[in-house]
Computed example of a mutant assay.
Amino acid sequence: MSDRTYYAPSGGHPGQAELLTGRAVFTESYAVLPKGVMRDIVTSRLPHWDGTRAWIIARPMTGFAETFSQYILEVLPGGGSDRPEPDPGAEGALFVVDGTVSLSLDGTQHRLEPGGFAYIPPGAEWRLRNDGAAPARFHWIRKAYEPVEGLPVPKPLVTSDAAVAPSPMPGTNGAWATTRFVDPDDLSHDMHVTIVTLEPGACIPFLETHVMEHGLYVLEGKGAYRLNRDWVEVEAGDFMWLRAFCPQACYAGGPGRFRYLLYKDVNRHPKLRPGA
Rank of each mutant, 00 (worst) to 15 (best):
1 M>I: 04
79 G>T: 06
35 K>S: 04
142 R>T: 06
111 R>P: 04
185 D>N: 01
226 R>F: 10
94 L>Q: 01
137 R>E: 15
56 I>Q: 15
174 G>A: 12
19 L>K: 09
228 N>T: 11
222 K>Q: 10
181 F>R: 02
171 G>R: 10
190 D>N: 07
100 T>D: 11
192 H>R: 00
184 P>M: 11
244 A>M: 07
258 F>H: 14
71 Y>S: 10
6 Y>F: 13
40 D>Q: 08
71 Y>C: 01
89 G>N: 08
15 G>K: 10
189 H>A: 03
154 P>C: 01
11 G>L: 10
211 V>W: 10
238 D>S: 04
203 C>H: 15
223 G>L: 00
271 K>M: 13
53 R>A: 09
203 C>S: 15
249 A>S: 09
225 Y>W: 02
102 S>L: 10
211 V>N: 04
130 N>D: 12
97 V>M: 07
96 V>W: 10
48 H>S: 13
23 R>N: 09
171 G>C: 09
89 G>C: 10
252 A>R: 03
116 G>I: 01
79 G>W: 02
142 R>S: 00
194 T>F: 00
127 R>Y: 02
165 A>S: 07
127 R>Q: 14
214 H>Q: 06
237 G>W: 07
118 A>V: 09
213 E>M: 14
90 A>K: 09
258 F>D: 06
207 L>H: 14
14 P>F: 12
171 G>V: 03
44 S>D: 08
